[in-house]
Simulated scan of single mutants.
Amino acid sequence: MTLGTAASVRIAGETDDRNIDRYELASARRALRLIKGNLGDRLHALVGAEIAVGNAFFRDHVRRSGGEQVTGTLTIEARGLTAAAFSAWMIRAFTREDVLIAAQPEHYLMDMADPRGPHIVETLGEHVVGFRMGGWDESEVPGGTDRRHSLLTLDDDGTVVGSVSTSFREADHGMTAELSVTLPATSAPEAVEQHLQHFSVEFRSWMLLAAAETGEGSR
């Protein structure tokens, strides 16, 4: 072995460690599903101190930004799944707390039954934040695609901290999803970039599950 060569590990006969990564990801998902399922609402209480810090952090950025915001957008593609099928599946999925919690490791609370609006606790940037999603404002965009837009308000004092928007479009390969997040300008670009990464994980989880449950992926 040459001195200075970086260490690596792989299964004998394979060219890299991608399969080990897959196995680790599957194990991590099983572990989180078990832990989150057993903790239930207690998980929210466990991160209460972190939520207070995170909400204060973004409230300060709202003040410092003076109304200026920054938006980041991510486009992801799904094969073997139509936009129509996914949109219909998502409407049903938003009544299934287990599906919503499991989609992203940093989903700590996804209470869609709250009469004041969906109550979510997740990570924004480097902070755990509690917020409520407003009702989806729907508008038509070119190509006949419905874009849905929702304001995010901090759950402790109602400060508008930003917004998210989604649009799903049919494509030859299946569908594309355009996902956007808007946050106070002084918290960008780190928080915006982190949440685009967050989007990629949760929407891939939902799209793969939608394809499996609708049978579209097997056609």
Rank of each mutant, 00 (worst) to 15 (best):
R18M: 02
F57R: 13
A26V: 07
A49R: 15
G48W: 09
E68S: 10
V53K: 08
N55C: 15
Y23W: 11
G37P: 11
F57Y: 14
A31I: 12
A45K: 07
D16C: 07
F58E: 02
F58W: 02
D41M: 04
H61V: 10
A28V: 05
G48Y: 07
G67M: 07
H44Q: 08
K36Y: 15
F57L: 10
S27Y: 11
G40P: 08
A45W: 10
E50H: 08
N38P: 00
E14F: 03
E24V: 09
R22W: 10
A26C: 06
R29I: 08
H44L: 13
L43H: 08
D21V: 01
I51P: 00
D60V: 09
L39E: 15
A28P: 00
R59H: 09
I35T: 06
I51N: 01
R33L: 13
H44V: 15
R18W: 00
R18N: 01
R33I: 14
I35N: 13
R64A: 13
I20P: 00
K36T: 10
R42S: 12
E50S: 11
G66Q: 05
F57S: 08
R59W: 03
D41C: 02
L34E: 11
G48C: 06
G48Q: 14
F57M: 08
V53T: 11
R30S: 10
D60F: 06
R63C: 04
D21Q: 10
D16R: 01
F57K: 13
N55P: 04
R42E: 14
R29H: 03
E68M: 12
F58K: 04
N19E: 14
H44G: 05
F57W: 10
D41F: 02
L32Y: 06
L32T: 06
D16L: 03
G66K: 03
R22G: 04
E24Q: 02
